[in-house]
Design a protein around this nucleic acid. Structure first.
Lengths: 213, 213
DNA sequence: GGGCCTCCCTACCACTTGGTAGGCAATCGT
DNA sequence: ACGATTGCCTACCAAGTGGTAGGGAGGCCC
């Protein structure tokens, strides 16, 4: 029995559907707070069938984490391409990073949870998959510094990490922190993100051409 | 009912020791990932004794969260006093906020976890306890804007939330994000924090007197 | 003293958890 | 045609969970 062909989810393999369901639940209730029973229910199979595809809960956890990082990694080139030159593209790049996580907030929440639950593993995985790319950004910023376009008091590496922390944190805890903004105004998300981009920009570029030149 | 107000440097009450142990464990392993058995062991009592002081695990959770927020709230005036005027004090204020959470990172980690686990409750508690104080900061920033000292493209509310997100996120996930900074250089923490302060500052103040006037 | 309250204990319980054993139908390679 | 493999199932289990029952030692007030 197969579901409707029009539904994009219908074409996913059972493995993929398990990973997707697990990601959502791990993100929402945490790893320890999620039972295999609940994941199996969400997929529409029985628990032992789930354990046939993933031999233990820990293996499933790892698969979910790998999946999120793989998606992130595969999106990075596209995101970076948008920030390759100038201030306008830079704003677009940060915005695109935000949209990547915002498109499925469970990605951000999962990463935050795993950073808390297994810092050593996440540290290793990020170093392996994401760091090479951030290295490109760091080089780009340093180039901008040598050309006088970028503030020279910027610590490029710390800057990148800080912006990433802000982006992921903003998406993951967005609902809560947004409630601190003026009651519950409609444009909370937009305001928060535009302030994020503004902060990132103000912290990076010289406001106007250096006075000496 | 608190009986320890006049106690000079006496040992903590059992209740307080339970809350402290629970905070550490909830922060480290999460609420669902922590058993009452483990908390009781850390305190050095049996599980039913723990349940004598807190009638359910959920009540303990709430007590832990209240405790953290109460400490935060009570520290806020002192932290704000340091940022009342000018750029130097501002840096001190943000730095002080960082130190507050860094003094016991389990506070930051617990708040992040609870923002993920029970966003509605945390939203309500933050609005009740913390928001009045951030309101003061917002007013202060707006005053600075009317005096031309602060950039006028700053959305004061979003700015404050964004900085707080960055501070809490930096402390909570510090170990991991720091590993993205150049191998594992010794001053990772300091570099990260100083970049945080620099970002906050660059995003707030006019770099030099406004050009038009 | 005697009753009472505080605080901690041992013993126990119903329930859920991750995981295993083994069977059954469809599909595949040859 | 037919054994092996795949993918799912029912039935089960040992361990651990949050929580309860009830008892006992010590201090406090009359």
């Amino acid at each position: 029995m197969v579901e409707t062909v029009a539904d994009p989810e219908a074409e996913l393999s059972v493995r993929e559907r398990i990973v997707a369901a697990a990601r959502r639940q791990f993100a929402e209730r945490g790893f320890a707070g999620t039972s295999l029973q609940a994941v199996a229910d969400a997929v529409g199979i029985r628990k032992p069938s789930l354990l046939y595809h993933f031999r233990s809960k820990d293996i499933l956890r790892r698969a979910v984490l790998d999946d999120v990082l793989a998606h992130w990694k595969s999106e990075l080139p596209r995101l970076l391409a948008q920030s390759r030159s100038g201030k306008d593209r830079f704003a677009g790049g940060v915005g695109a990073l935000v949209s990547f996580f915002q498109a499925d907030p469970s990605r951000a929440r999962l990463i935050v949870r795993e950073m808390l639950d297994q810092p050593e593993l996440v540290k290793q995985l990020l170093t392996e998959h994401v760091r090479p790319w951030t290295g490109l950004v760091v080089d780009y910023i340093r180039m901008g510094q040598s050309m006088g376009q970028v503030r020279d008091d910027v610590d490029a590496e710390s800057y990148v990490v800080q912006i990433a922390t802000m982006v992921i944190g903003t998406v993951a805890t967005g609902e809560v922190s947004r409630s601190m903004i003026s009651g519950d105004r409609e444009d909370g998300v937009a305001a928060q993100i535009s302030e994020l981009v503004r902060l990132a920009r103000a912290g990076l570029f010289n406001v106007r051409p250096p006075p000496g030149a």
